[in-house]
């Protein structure tokens, strides 16, 4: 505390926080697994509800898989700050001399690594369930790769706003889901268009732009929200 904060200090704090969050997540594997299981089950429900016709499944697959991904990432959001808020670790993070937005970014990256990354690894399997062509599955993986970080980043704002509330879960979905719409639109359309054989560069560029925007602005908003929620 008595030395002025400088660059390597900040980097170390960032990595420490990242490692800590990952370690905590891996100590409770059920919390990583449950949203994934939810993702798989939701996608499985659609063929059961609609019928196993391959053409129908292929048409609805991009939307269904992406909506399930949105819901699954939302389920895991609540844990991003909740435990830290409950045990007081969040206050310690707020008190640190480092810029809060950078530390928040470390937490968001950790969240994405335990919630978004496994989702991406699972998605080809679900794509095959839903009868997607191989080009579509490649597009699905690419869009998830660009899109899920945006979900984690936007979601972190909503989570930070609701962390002080006891029943934040449903409220969180009300706040966050409308903001997810652009990601859903571009990603689902990319997967759909790829199935027909058209290029998807435009959609991927849009998703990339959304990611760049979210990466620069969302941590600031999350940091401001955390200060409000904890004060």
């Amino acid at each position: 505390m008595n030395v002025t904060p400088n660059e390597p200090e900040l980097g170390r704090a960032f990595l420490t926080l990242l490692r800590r969050d990952l370690l905590l997540a891996f100590r409770r594997p059920a919390e990583i697994a449950n949203p994934l299981l939810f993702f798989i089950i939701v996608v499985t429900l659609f063929p059961l509800g609609i019928g196993p016709e391959p053409n129908t499944l292929q048409t609805i697959a991009p939307g269904v898989i992406w909506v399930a991904a949105l819901l699954a990432s939302m389920l895991s959001l609540d844990g991003m700050f909740r435990t830290d808020f409950d045990d007081g670790a969040l206050e310690q993070i707020l008190l640190s001399p480092h810029p809060l937005s950078v530390l928040v970014l470390a937490k968001v990256i950790a969240h994405w690594m335990v919630s978004g990354l496994p989702l991406i690894l699972l998605s080809p399997l679900l794509g095959m369930f839903m009868n997607l062509t191989s080009q579509s599955i490649v597009a699905l993986v690419l869009t998830l790769l660009l899109g899920t970080p945006v979900l984690s980043l936007i979601g972190s704002i909503g989570t930070a706003l609701t962390v002080g509330l006891r029943k934040g879960g449903v409220l969180l979905s009300l706040l966050v889901l409308p903001l997810y719409i652009p990601v859903l639109i571009f990603a689902a359309s990319a997967v759909e268009v790829a199935g027909v054989g058209f290029p998807i560069a435009a959609q991927l560029s849009f998703l990339g732009a959304l990611l760049a925007l979210a990466l620069t602005l969302a941590p600031l908003a999350t940091a401001a929200s955390l200060r409000i929620s904890v004060s």
């Binding site: 704002i157 706003l161 002080g164 009300l174 706040l175 908003a221 409000i228 929620s229």
Partner: peptide, 29 residues
């Protein structure tokens, strides 16, 4: 939906000043 989300957030926070600031962040986002 955005309006309703704002109302839902500000009404569920008891402290009026915290509610206002949280709502402000949400409106800007």
């Amino acid at each position: 939906f955005l309006f309703l989300g704002y109302i839902a957030l500000t009404t569920s926070i008891d402290d009026k000043r915290t509610a206002a600031r949280a709502g402000a962040v949400l409106a800007l986002v």
